[in-house]
């Protein structure tokens, strides 16, 4: 039940795009067609599910105050939390590189679909943002952290596919010139965000 709750919360209530604007740059850049939006959305889910548990382990066994006590009692008061950013971004960048290589070897079809998006993802705020929120929320188990990553990714995926579908539909609409393109995308996202506010306080 707890896991279901975390999933629903991270996917809908605290949606990455509509509540925190994480990964807006790539969100606006790839949402011109549903096909590319689908590809990047899948890649984000995939990378979040892989990197959040790794960062959870690093946070709890290396960075947190007293996390190094498994090395011996003399390390029990070491606090490395100021290294958080550089560790997380290193994990994310290298994981993305590694995932790219593994996917290329194991499943060329998947690589064909995700390939061009994977390098983009290292600098997507949604991934680092997810890791930093995971650190802030202090999850009790690695399972909860993984479900949080999955939920956040699914939320991002839903948002990007929805807006791509809307932008495809309005391509031939008669929009006032100055709003064409980015301006309209901002307005649509704002209205979708209002709709997503309806999930506020939603719990199972």
């Amino acid at each position: 039940m707890d896991l279901v709750n975390i999933f629903i919360r991270s996917a809908f209530v605290d949606n990455m795009i509509f509540a925190f604007f994480f990964g807006m740059c790539s969100y606006l850049a790839v949402s011109k067609t549903v096909k590319t939006a689908f590809g990047l959305g899948m890649a984000v889910i995939f990378v979040l599910v892989v990197t959040i548990p790794i960062n959870y382990l690093i946070e709890n066994y290396v960075l947190k105050e007293g996390a190094l006590s498994w090395l011996g009692s003399e390390f029990s008061d070491v606090n490395l939390s100021y290294l958080t950013f550089i560790m997380f971004i290193a994990v994310i960048a290298s994981t993305v590189q590694l995932v790219e290589m593994i996917v290329e070897k194991i499943s060329p079809a998947l690589y064909g679909a995700l390939g061009i998006f994977l390098p983009l993802i290292a600098v997507n705020c949604a991934i680092l943002g997810g890791a930093l929120f995971m650190q802030e929320k202090q999850f009790a188990t690695i399972g909860q952290a993984t479900v949080y990553g999955l939920g956040s990714g699914v939320g991002w995926f839903i948002a990007v596919v929805l807006i791509a579908a809307i932008r495809e539909r309005i391509r031939y609409a008669n929009i006032p010139g100055p709003l064409r393109g980015v301006g309209m995308a901002f307005l649509i996202t704002g209205l979708m965000g209002l709709a997503f506010l309806g999930f506020m306080g939603f719990e199972i």
Binding site: R171, G177, P178, G181, M184, F186, L187
Partner: peptide, 28 residues
Amino acid sequence: LLPPSSLIIVAVYIWIQKLRNPSLIETH
């Protein structure tokens, strides 16, 4: 105070900016 309002303010900002400078208008 809620997140969606910043999107709408930025959209209006873009609108005004491109209204003043039509050369920035995108053509799909």
